[in-house]
Nucleic acid binder design. Structure first.
Lengths: 183, 183
DNA sequence: TTCGTAGGCCAACAACTGTTGACGTTAGAG
DNA sequence: CTCTAACGTCAACAGTTGTTGGCCTACGAA
């Protein structure tokens, strides 16, 4: 069988995300990724150069935050939480970042970068409080990532059994208060 | 040099906890642990049988929750958060559990077990609501572990700069509301 | 003193890792 | 058609991993 280079890259990336998300950086081997993609480990090396660069490519992610400025203040927190949960479940990139970020320095740095360049600015404009925005964004992250950790990664039974919307209802108020919005 | 068997075990365990806490399960090699302990990898094997059993021993932990029943309801959440932060910083066992629990199935199971057998019962007696206790305990865990993740593991700058007591003040209210206590 | 048990160390194994080089094959440009 | 660049595959490398067996040595009981 024969594919174009970009097709092969796409296939490899999909397999890599799956493996990195399921096993973390160390246990996800190039051989396993290649096997999942149905080709030779050499192809993976030729397309991405090294495991580190493949991982970097698998992490290339944009939070794609929804337009929060247009939503009423009372619904911002819920919208934020809902968006995060949907993003987590629809695509493996966030799982990759969290699973690998715990043991891999590069992944941790990437999480910090996404946090600092995407979330903090949004919080700053939302609250109109640029000074307090980093801490507020940090608290929001701690709440949301903590839920992801316990619900998806550690799989605490009572949390996995909640529906997505129940999660939104239950941690939304805390996120709302961390954002410090009126009304 | 010559030591008693139990002394050697203690030395190895200390080195193992440090390595597992810093590097996670996979990157923490028996050779590195042995080197830190100042002896041969073979000794580690003879004392603990295998890496898995060494890890299990390094995870043997009790939350040692403080006596929450005696504290006034308004201070329970703060006491809980404070206790967790102190425990995290004083001893590496919790770091081991979180760092390894993300990629190691056995560690994740252990975290779930600690959660189910230690935290849930306490929450149940505190709230007098055995039915809702698992979810409440799950939410408390998500909040506290999320803070540990972002502050200690991912090292979000705005969160690492907070003092321990500031963290208590700032996430205490959310924990309090998750516990659903009166007053 | 003698002797056996047990701690300590060395060398080595088999398995697996990321990575490299070479060779065959096929599609598309000229 | 011809030629070339890129895909695909095989074999192998050097390094690291957990794990094992054997040998030396020191301590305590006899």
């Amino acid at each position: 069988m024969r594919r174009s280079s970009s097709e092969t890259k796409t296939v490899i990336l999909a397999a890599a995300r799956e493996r990195f998300a399921a096993d973390g950086y160390d246990r996800a081997t190039i051989r396993a990724i290649a096997a999942d993609a149905g080709l030779d480990p050499t192809q993976v090396m030729r397309c991405f150069g090294s495991k580190d660069r493949l991982f970097a490519a698998a992490c290339a992610v944009d939070l794609n935050l929804p337009d929060l400025l247009g939503t009423p203040p009372g619904e911002i927190a819920a919208t934020l939480v809902r968006h995060f949960l949907e993003r987590w479940e629809s695509d493996e990139t966030l799982q990759v970042l969290l699973r690998a970020g715990v043991t891999n320095a590069a992944a941790a740095e990437r999480v910090r970068a996404v946090f600092a360049t995407r979330l903090v600015p949004v919080v700053a404009t939302l609250t109109g409080d640029p000074e307090g925005a980093p801490v507020r964004a940090g608290l929001v992250s701690a709440q949301i990532l903590g839920m992801a950790l316990c619900r998806y990664v550690l799989a605490f039974p009572p949390l996995t059994e909640l529906t997505r919307e129940e999660v939104v209802e239950v941690i939304g108020p805390a996120v709302h208060s961390y954002l410090g919005l009126e009304s």
